[in-house]
Write a protein that binds this DNA or RNA. Sequence first.
DNA 1: CTAAAATAAGACTTAATTGGTACTAATTGA
DNA 2: TCAATTAGTACCAATTAAGTCTTATTTTAG
Lengths: 159, 159
Amino acid sequence: MLRISKLTDYATVLMAEMQSSLDEPRSATVLADQARLELPTTAKVLKILAKSGLVRSIRGVNGGYQLVRPAREISIAAIIRAMEGPIALTECGLEPGTCPREQDCSLRSNWRRIGATVEQALDAMTLADLAAPNSTTEDGHIAERNVDQRLKIVARNQA
Amino acid sequence: MLRISKLTDYATVLMAEMQSSLDEPRSATVLADQARLELPTTAKVLKILAKSGLVRSIRGVNGGYQLVRPAREISIAAIIRAMEGPIALTECGLEPGTCPREQDCSLRSNWRRIGATVEQALDAMTLADLAAPNSTTEDGHIAERNVDQRLKIVARNQA
DNA sequence: CTAAAATAAGACTTAATTGGTACTAATTGA
DNA sequence: TCAATTAGTACCAATTAAGTCTTATTTTAG
């Protein structure tokens, strides 16, 4: 269904939660509580993020996790890559032997092209954009937000 | 990894193969042979596509499958939806009770917005674009193709 | 009109991935 | 030295995807 995994979703929630206190670290227990997630799952996600360098981990008493960079400098694509690996729509990115036919290869090449564009859009969008609150106008429409503006910028650069 | 399933990938290969003979149907056996895919898998994919109305199935002797519309009128998004259901990056599209926190909801809303843009791009791209062969210039660069042009059009409309 | 062959449609089984949990080791500060 | 905290590894469960098999339907031929 062209989706990101649950763990990646949790990662965005946790990192959005973390952006409020850049100065001092918060433990996995506290973050799990604030994000309303299970502790074991939270710990797992934070470990993966720490290993990839998106968050800093501090051991010992009064230790915990914190963002290494402000939210506006962390792209959505970086979070997805940290949690799930390289972004690709089709899985034949590294296995050339799987491709049995010549005509298929043009399909794969075009799939990669589409995937690259999607990745570019996700690279232009930041954690700060994603965590920005919604504002609904009185006629029920949702006001334009950072997300939209980012997407437009990507669109302009593409064209 | 933000990917489509193998079956969806097979579907694009099979439908690209089918576009060459819009007039008379080809059996699952023939299509499997031409696409170099296993027969049972091919049959399964064709059944799903037939059920969703993207291909027509004809029973009996000399029966088979054929596209209902020309390839340029079939969007990539339609194929993905036929094979995998609604396109969404996060899976909380229909379950409002899962969302435990207020702040999270702004994340979800923004995720949906991003997903909608991806879907729009995939809706503007057709099977004919995807199946278009590659042309590489002498300096190693890949010449601009339909896929690029479609993406640019989407980008312009977005902006 | 009957029967056989070809074919699609549906149910089922197996494999793989993901999500979630638990346990042990290492580190830090009091 | 003890308590708090993360790091790493391994494991189990559940969901999903992939592939296989059996049944039902249609068409042509005799």
